[in-house]
């Protein structure tokens, strides 16, 4: 993998940063299958591994990660199905929608239309069970995290940060401005496959 560098994350984790979009899922599979790492977590532009310093002193961990990454990866992710989510955008479900539209100098309708016409794809799951980071949002739309994260965001909420949507499968704390909510069951602990979405899933948003 070219251009990636390794950054320590405390005493028992290392991060590969600036990984190309598809590469990081492939390298994560290689790292996970090696059995050398306690956890392998894909981020938006990174792969973070946790190791056991009793088995693998920090310098040895770094060497091992460098070696595994330098071997390189090849392959392609399989094409994933399209999932359509129906999303409510009235104020109770979308407390930050009008603010996001205003910040972009457009009406709520224009803002929603630009999301509807975005080529959305689940980039990764993370943060919380079933939480999906969705890429492909119209690049002209701007917006950042809330200055003060909310302690409770309802399940099904859809957050927006420029370039991305974040879909909350469960109620929980969150720092993304909320621009809608879906009733779809995104996480079901009793299902054989508990997650509706997975990395690579293509998404279509329909506004209710």
């Amino acid at each position: 993998m070219t251009g990636a560098r390794i950054v320590p994350c405390g005493d028992d984790a290392l991060r590969l940063v600036t990984c190309a979009s598809d590469d990081r899922h492939l390298i994560a599979d290689v790292l996970r299958n090696s059995g050398s790492w306690r956890e392998v977590v894909v981020g938006r532009e990174s792969v973070t591994v946790q190791f056991d310093p009793l088995d693998l002193p920090p310098p040895a961990a770094r060497d091992l990660l460098e070696k595994m990454v330098s071997v390189g990866v090849s392959g392609q992710q399989a094409v994933q199905p399209v999932v359509t989510l129906t999303v409510n955008a009235e104020e109770a479900s979308a407390p930050d929608l009008s603010g996001c539209a205003e910040a972009n100098g457009c009406t709520i309708e224009e803002f929603l239309s630009r999301l509807h016409h975005s080529r959305l794809r689940v980039d990764m799951l993370g943060f919380a069970p079933g939480f999906a980071y969705v890429s492909g949002v119209d690049q002209s739309l701007r917006g950042g995290r809330l200055e003060n994260p909310r302690q409770r965001v309802p399940a099904g909420s859809i957050g927006f940060i420029e370039g991305y949507l974040g879909i909350y499968a469960l109620e929980g704390p969150g720092g993304w401005p909320i621009i809608g909510r879906t009733n779809a069951i995104l996480f079901d602990k009793s299902a054989p496959d508990p997650f509706l979405l997975s990395a690579g899933t293509r998404l279509q948003i329909e506004w209710a």
């Binding site: 991060r15 956890e39 981020g43 938006r44 990174s46 946790q50 200055e147 994260p149």
Partner: peptide
């Protein structure tokens, strides 16, 4: 303010 989301583990001190 918006770092790309990345893996975190218990013990991390974050600063919003």
């Amino acid at each position: 303010e918006n770092l790309p989301s990345a893996g975190v583990f218990p013990g991390a001190l974050q600063l919003p």
